[in-house]
Amino acid sequence: MRNAWTLTKVRMRLALRNRAFIFFSLVFPLIFLFLFLGLFARSNVAAVPYMLASVLAITVMGSFWGLSIQLVTFREQGILRRFRVAPVGPGAMLASSILSNYILTLPTVAIEFALARRIFHMQGWGNLGGVFFLITLGIVTFAALGLIIASVTNSTQETQVINQILWSAFLFLSGATLPLPMLPIWLQRFALFLPATYLVTGLERVMVARVGIRQIEPEIVALAVSAAMAFFLSQQLFRWEPEAKVGPRAKVLAAATIVPFLLLGLWETAHGNLRSTARTDFLSIERSAPADRPAPLNAPR
């Protein structure tokens, strides 16, 4: 535990000295904040929490990107093998990845809240406890997914390609950029199988409808089980050596991380009400739009 904390402090320092990290973890989410809230919630204060939920989800989902690249770079450059001859285990290395990411993401979240209140006049805080809980769980889950990506890729280039594909899916198919009810029905059904969708809809529910975390239990269970599986599997698949290549069996094992979302997606498709609650939350902000201003978005039924 002490080693994990030492590594966490060092990795936080390294991240803060990295301009790319500052851009992607602070500047980039704030660009989304001003874009979303400025365009869609400027004249509709009731839409601010809904849009803020999307921005928070984007901030949280970004966890997996930098973390996977950093770990693979450390492995490629032979940095990890220097740690390997010291009494440092994979658990400490992986836990420090998640913990440093978590601590460094929280200030961005706080700034986003402060700006939403100060500049965009957001009323109230939503269910703040629920938001904090979901953000914590979301960062841990997406950071753990980053660890899995780092475990199954052999080079920085390969990691970037996989990150790009996942990031695009998370960003555009989960409701984070385009509200879920606006997507074609077949895409909405596909979105039920993405971890990002549960984070986005969970945050929308606690921010807009201010529901308690008991009412978003499926989302929480899926995120928590996935985080636990991803952390466990990334420990099993951890590679210190640049030349240690991952085999097809490990890739299959890593794919098990998405099992909770497959199960939840199937359950949601058959019995769930995620799509209808997402639609309700979305329509509630549309209804509150000023009468002189046409509703900006039309949701398909």
């Binding site: 002490r2 080693n3 030492t6 590594l7 060092v10 320092r13 390294l14 000295r17 990295n18 450390f74 450059q77 032979g78 940095i79 093998r81 220097r82 001859v85 010291a86 009494p87 440092v88």
Partner: peptide, 27 residues
């Protein structure tokens, strides 16, 4: 044991004092 590997690599933006203090803390 102590080891000097054939090629030792550390993160570029790690300071010398931080590197040695970090490794000392592991033991």
């Amino acid at each position: 044991i102590g080891a000097v590997l054939q090629s030792t690599a550390l993160p570029d933006k790690l300071r010398v004092g931080e590197a040695i203090s970090m490794f000392a803390s592991f033991y």
